[in-house]
């Protein structure tokens, strides 16, 4: 089923009884890299078109499996309304577009949050059996309930409070549609002001993973192949917007910060 179809199915099925526990399902798939798709992704996010996968690219390879898992009735939180609040990616080495990749996705750590319930969708990517990439996407379901967790929650990456911006982005109204086309994330909140309004947003909002990718692309040529990119999404980035990127080198890595005059959208560390 297409991702759009899964969204519709999830929306229709959002009402009614749901499981209270996470399914133990693990979804697996071989994902050959389509170079035309990789090039389109690079264009939309601002990476150079090349053979090495941008650190954030495997997320879009794993994303359809995430949706498949979250759209199922066995998943305790309704897919419509889930908010992506944090994403942590670790690459062990560079991945070449010619490599054969296998993706595994599972859900874990359903836990309480002051505003509802959180869950992690974990994607692991292996090249020829060798684990090369790991992604943890944390989603928040407002108003939902879940048991408290005593597991340590790593602190959120802190913002860069002072100093001039390194770049000003004019993020146009079509950004959400363009990223939807390359990521498959066709959540209506990203596509059009009217569909976004239906979900309570004043305008369409940018995909957090687009903002994360676009910020990372600004560091092209200055990042290590093996790295962890830890991103926290704060306030939604309404489209269109003018936002500022701040970067600061810290040790071998970077702190990143994306915000507009009114709101903080993203804080991240690359280490």
């Amino acid at each position: 089923m297409s991702l759009a179809g899964l969204y519709v199915k999830a929306a229709v099925g959002a009402v009614g009884p749901r499981s209270r526990e996470l399914p133990s399902t693990e979804l697996m798939r071989s994902v050959p890299v389509d170079r035309a798709h990789l090039a389109a992704y690079a264009r939309v996010c601002g990476f150079a078109v090349g053979d090495v996968l941008p650190l954030t690219y495997p997320h879009v390879l794993a994303f359809p499996l995430q949706v498949e898992l979250m759209a199922s009735r066995a998943f305790p939180l309704p897919l419509p309304g889930l908010v992506h609040v944090r994403n942590t990616i670790t690459a062990r080495r560079r991945i070449d577009a010619a490599e054969e990749l296998d993706v595994r996705v599972h859900a874990e750590r359903l836990r309480a949050h002051p505003k509802g319930a959180q869950v992690d969708l974990v994607a692991e990517i292996a090249a020829g059996g060798e684990p090369v990439w790991h992604g943890r996407s944390t989603y928040l379901a407002r108003g939902a309930s879940a048991p408290d967790s005593d597991k340590f929650e790593p602190p959120l990456p802190s913002g860069i409070e002072d100093g001039p911006a390194v770049a000003t982005w004019l993020v146009d109204a079509g950004t959400g549609r363009r990223y939807a086309a390359v990521s498959g994330d066709v959540n209506p909140i990203h596509l059009h002001p009217l569909t976004a309004k239906a979900f309570g947003f004043p305008r369409a909002i940018a995909h957090g993973m687009w903002t994360a990718a676009h910020a990372l692309a600004a560091l092209q040529g200055r990042t290590a192949d093996a790295a962890t990119y830890d991103v926290a999404f704060a306030k939604p980035l309404l489209l269109p917007s003018i936002v500022e990127l701040r970067t600061r080198p810290v040790g071998d890595g970077w702190h990143l910060d994306v915000r507009s005059r009114k709101a903080q959208h993203l804080t991240a560390t690359l280490s």
């Binding site: 090039a39 150079a48 090349g50």
Partner: peptide, 14 residues
């Protein structure tokens, strides 16, 4: 076909 001059030059310098 999808690569720009900037893409190719960057890849070559790298």
């Amino acid at each position: 076909a999808t690569a720009s001059n900037l893409d190719m030059l960057t890849a070559t310098l790298d």
